[in-house]
């Protein structure tokens, strides 16, 4: 073996190792920040579903695109009303790349809203399947979707849209107003919550007969809303905050709760 080649190879490896050591302070903060936004891949949970090439692609920086491709497959399975494939692919996509909310929300909606219809159709259609059986399908699929959303919330605990999705499934599929209201309350408490979340929470409290609670909530909520003419808010925020509608609901509740005029909310 040429000694000069061995020596030169050793110098190159040594300098590279030294460079790696010296440049670590430059790389490590960026890498840490990146890892924080990009949860570790739980390969053991998905490895069975992937070939080796896909696994290397995933590890080698093509995670987003692999997830996108599986999402397209999930859509193709959805188009065929193939329940096991769609459900498996949704779980696979969210395991590969749990960052996009789109995967979680759309996946949960497919499971909760579309799959019960598929099951009913597969069991003979709406006329053949009893109402109790239909309800069972609704409940079972809603529970699967809620479980998926629970995983989503573990990844994105401050994401209002996930709470809203959860609330809608609880309200529309499980007919559970109390649980839906609680989810809307959670949604309204998040930093990026849309204004309608707080309004709907108040409305649900009222619908459940908890008018006093609704009254207290809406008064507090009203104070946080941007009002017309507010310099800090954009026209879009002012328009969607609908402060006048909230004030009207407060006055309705005052009438229903018979709040004395002098104690009426002035805003």
């Amino acid at each position: 073996m040429d000694l000069r080649l061995v020596r030169s190879g050793a110098v190159v490896a040594g300098v590279l190792a030294l460079a790696g050591l010296m440049l670590r302070p430059l790389e490590a903060p960026a890498w840490r920040a990146m890892r924080a936004q990009q949860p570790a891949l739980k390969l053991e949970s998905i490895q069975g579903a992937l070939g080796q090439g896909v696994t290397v692609g995933l590890l080698g920086g093509f995670r987003a695109i692999v997830a996108d491709l599986f999402w397209i497959s999930a859509n193709a399975a959805w188009d065929q009303e193939d329940l096991p494939a769609t459900q498996t692919l949704i779980k696979l996509v969210t395991a590969i790349d749990p960052r996009p909310l789109f995967f979680w929300i759309n996946g949960a909606n497919m499971i909760a809203y579309d799959m019960p219809h598929w099951r009913i159709r597969a069991a003979g259609g709406y006329d053949a399947v009893s109402a109790a059986e239909q309800n069972r399908f609704d409940r079972e699929q809603a529970e699967v979707a809620l479980k998926l959303l629970q995983e989503a919330l573990a990844q994105h605990p401050e994401e209002a849209s996930l709470y809203i999705c959860k609330a809608n499934i609880q309200l529309n599929r499980l007919k559970d107003t109390a649980a839906g209201a609680e989810s809307y309350r959670m949604a309204a408490a998040q930093p990026n919550a849309p204004y309608f979340a707080g309004r709907i929470y108040g409305e649900l409290l009222k619908r459940m007969g908890r008018k006093q609670e609704a009254y207290v909530w809406l008064k507090q909520f009203y104070l946080t809303l941007p009002k017309p003419g507010s310099a800090q808010a954009t026209p879009w925020q002012i328009e969607t905050a609908m402060a006048d509608v909230v004030l009207e609901r407060i006055h309705e509740l005052e009438r229903e709760l018979k709040v004395p005029k002098e104690q009426a909310f002035k805003g």
């Binding site: 590279l16 190792a17 790696g20 440049l23 790389e27 890498w31 990146m34």
Partner: peptide, 11 residues
């Protein structure tokens, strides 16, 4: 050593 010799392309 491997972790130091090769740069991190993922970053």
């Amino acid at each position: 050593l491997l972790g130091y010799v090769f740069p991190n392309f993922q970053v």
